[in-house]
């Protein structure tokens, strides 16, 4: 059965002066898929993601996200995506409840819907009773889970996660991924960058970026077979060693 594509790029490129951060990248992401974007630091993952989110203007190539063109309809795209940046970006001086209300509000959710969503979310995150805590006071793992839940509070078609589990303990990472699976089950397409290879194995398909190009794109099982490796770690190392750019 042919699935609908929610992200399609063709020779998408981003140059900063002489430096080509993203080099002729073409791929398609299907609806409801968990799509992993893997690469060493500085391989161009974040830049590629920022172009798709409408935060950065591509230098050349084409791309559509949720059926909208990244050049002309970037404001339309924004209504249909969620985004969780590498840098934690909830308001630390607002409470959990206030953050939910604010982000739900700017995506145009009605008050009643916001209340329902807040209850649901607090329950799901086991944060009932803590809703009046300032976000500043939360442990990092809680903050990340909260940030993810808030990024999808408006039920977007796609959510972009930029290294969402950086610096988080293994148990919280596992909990985080169960949240991701739950969202994917509801039909939200997940586009996630990571350096954790065990997380790469959780994805439906993985693309590996080396020096701004996509060197491999397939399901983890196929990649492991193709590169004759028992784990994604092995696959990644074989590809990443070819890199000429040094990481940051």
């Amino acid at each position: 059965m042919e699935k609908e594509n929610v992200i399609v790029t063709h020779e998408l490129t981003k140059r900063f002066g002489d430096f080509t951060a993203v080099d002729n990248v073409s791929f398609a992401v299907q609806k409801g898929e968990i799509f992993g974007f893997i690469g060493a630091n500085g391989a161009g993952k974040t830049t590629a993601m920022r172009m798709l989110c409408g935060l950065s203007l591509p230098s050349s190539g084409t791309a559509t996200v949720a059926g909208f063109d990244v050049y002309k309809q970037n404001e339309q795209i924004k209504k249909h995506i969620g985004y969780m940046s590498q840098k934690f970006s909830l308001y630390e001086d607002l409470t959990i409840r206030e953050n939910i209300r604010f982000y739900a509000g700017i995506y145009g959710l009605r008050d009643e819907r916001i209340r329902e969503k807040t209850d649901l979310l607090l329950q799901q995150l086991h944060m009932k009773g803590a809703e009046r805590t300032l976000v500043r006071a939360l442990p990092l793992g809680w903050k990340q889970k909260l940030a993810f839940s808030i990024a999808i509070v408006h039920d977007p078609a796609i959510v972009f996660l930029d290294e969402p589990t950086g610096g988080v303990d293994p148990i919280t990472r596992r909990e985080f991924w169960s949240l991701i699976y739950e969202a994917a089950g509801r039909g939200i397409t997940i586009f996630v960058t990571t350096h954790y290879m065990d997380e790469a194995e959780y994805c439906n398909r993985v693309s590996i970026m080396v020096d701004g190009r996509i060197d491999a794109l397939d399901s983890p099982a196929n990649l492991m077979q193709q590169y004759a490796s028992a784990s994604m770690d092995g696959v990644f190392l074989q590809l990443a060693r070819k890199a000429k750019r040094s990481g940051d």
């Binding site: 924004k78 940046s85 970006s89 995506y107």
Partner: peptide
């Protein structure tokens, strides 16, 4: 500095 502006920029505000 906090990075929250990016969250705003990626929203339909």
């Amino acid at each position: 500095e906090m990075g929250t502006i990016e969250q705003i920029n990626v929203s339909p505000i």
